[in-house]
Design a protein around this nucleic acid. Structure first.
Lengths: 217, 217, 217, 217
DNA sequence: CATGAATGAGCCTTCATTCAT
DNA sequence: GATGAATGAAGGCTCATTCAT
């Protein structure tokens, strides 16, 4: 049923709260767009308000200042922006990692704020902290998934889990730039392959391919 | 009359040009120190001049503006700051890479400006360009060194050189943070091992270890 | 249908005008409280509305602006706040003046706006004018009462009525601060005595004390 | 000798420090003029700078803010602005007090800031404190001079020194307004007479007039 | 009539850059 | 060349007042 078919129950305008929410969102959108386009410092509250089509003062009704808007933008997004859960145990770890990467990058493709973060970290230690903690969580998550794989004897026997986890995180974090700059259609696959080679001995990879993975789970 | 002919009286005074050079250097040093300590935006031209012991106006005699001073600081240092030449062919690629990394990180350890770059890239596309080009050069350098190794049949046969080069660059670029956060003494070795596993099949690594490397060069 | 005829249902609602009056009063009360507590400039229209439990916009339905509310507060109060009518002819002018002062100060004790006036006079010449006129009225009132006393030969023969009236006004106006800072219980009496000495020769005072005042009236 | 006659020793421009002082003074003058004309709140730093013929930023080179400029204006002037030392013992206390008043008022005639003080006291408790302390000093000064007179048996025997001192202070403080509003040439004399009547019994005044005051000193 | 979101002028302050000395 | 005072544009933010709902 399309909107046109609605016969009753139409509010001629949005309820108050909702309208405020709309405006708040417009500001957030504008902040997002401008931060991304011009950088955080280069964007003023006035700019954001103008871009959202509201007066300067309105900005301050919804946000105590520029930084708070940014925080709203970041809230709950940082984790998304960071690397995803990775499952190592599969028939074809390379492909499944590649798929995982592709999904991740598709998800964060639009998260342009990524480019603003570095600018901010140097002057906003609170934000730096938040990000640092999130990365630590990600790091631990990756590491623990690797630990499981190790317990099953799948990874290089002399692997330093801390270091690989870190390397994986770094690679995934920076991968989008690489993907975007490459027309190479196998990019995901190539990256996944690299990572798998850091983790698994070639024998294991072969072995997994022919096996019934269920046995490991 | 050349400097050589001066017999007396010249002691307290440096030749004009030299004095200028001294001032210029003082400004560069101060800029470096303050940018590093407080960030680029947070450092004012006045600050820098004061720190260098000259008047505000003097700053502008030597640099057209704050940005130019920064550029002077960066010029010739960007390359240093980025990953070094890597030689893949050795008896023990892991150890030699580890040593290379250690040297590199020791060299750039003090390059505190590293933390200022992100702040700048968003607002200075020229700088971003410069950095981008430098990275491209590094990338090509790594890639070409890998190509040589491939021609000798040392690397994984299905290796995508572009992607590995990129991954190596990313890892090396970010490695210092990792090293600093780890008390692990083998950090360099661990990172080197990872990288080598992305590049060389295990058989090759073993083979190299026992061989007379000269044969490959 | 008059109010009298309503039998039921009217309970929760005040007649419209009355409700408006209630709101207006609430605003006045709130304005009074906040001006007194925080000063005129420091109090915003929003503050006042919030304190009165109405919306910001409502404030402007009842008052054209903040200033007008203040004027409403002051209207009819200025005169109260200024010195009272004084009757000079009595058996004991000192005591009767003291009593008069005490009454006056008790009456204006709560007139906290007193402290707000100075802040306003510098920027509101109209208000300054209003106050000036009120003071002139007071001055004349005092002066004419003194004139009566003079006609009866009670005051110093060389008294400049204009000047004494002024001095009395000044003293009474400022007296409350004095009273409040003193624990002295005779404060009213002491002030009254001073004033009487400016007005009456000692002989007259003595004479009055023993006389039948009616004779002078 | 006029400026024209100076032949040598002319500085083509004032020494640096002096010029800065000149500018600082210009700002102080402008602050004074504008505070007086428009009130403190109504005057902005920009106004003051413009009036002084300098840029906004220049204001902030010399003063941290408006308040500091005001403080500079007030410093050392508050005491002047308050009532002067009074000597009670003289052949003709009325006249000598009148003279003293005249001198005082001539001195502070230009101290227009007087009208700004009230505005400030309500929002600047530090300033209020400073003024309060100054008034306390004045009050004590007057009281102690009265005490001397009392010890010589010159004043009303039942005089409450605290109250009279206060009344005198109030009258003197407010007297200038009175004087300015009056074309009466005897204004000083009239005020002085009032005050003397609060202090001295008429017999003492007569007695002093005919006496050799030295005897009391 | 009431509401409270929206407006935007205007204040305070900083700092990159210029320029008279 | 050197100096540092002067400049003034620009940013952050507030608040009296208006106006759509």
């Amino acid at each position: 049923m399309s909107d046109d078919e609605k016969l009753v129950g139409e509010f001629p305008f949005l309820p108050k709260q909702e309208r405020a929410q709309v405006k708040r969102n417009a500001l957030i959108e504008s902040g997002y767009a401008l931060f991304q386009a011009k950088g955080y410092e280069q964007t003023t509250a006035k700019d954001i308000a103008a871009h959202a089509g509201v007066a300067t003062g309105t900005f301050y009704r919804y946000f105590s200042d520029k930084r708070q808007l940014l925080m709203s933008l970041l809230e709950d997004k940082i984790e998304t922006f960071l690397p995803p859960e990775i499952s190592w145990i599969s028939n074809d770890p390379v492909s499944s990692l590649a798929t995982s990467l592709e999904n991740h990058y598709n998800r964060i493709h639009e998260f342009g704020l990524r480019h603003v973060l570095p600018e901010l970290l140097s002057k906003d230690s609170e934000l730096a902290n938040v990000l640092e903690k999130a990365r630590k969580r990600i790091h631990e998550r990756i590491q623990s998934s690797l630990k499981q794989a190790r317990e099953k004897g799948l990874v290089w026997s002399d692997l330093d889990l801390d270091t690989v986890s870190w390397a994986i995180m770094i690679i995934v974090e920076n991968g989008l730039d690489k993907i975007n700059k490459t027309e190479n259609k196998c990019a995901y696959q190539d990256i996944a392959k690299l990572i798998c080679r850091m983790v698994f001995p070639p024998t294991v990879l072969n072995q997994l391919r022919g096996s019934d993975v269920e046995a490991f789970e």
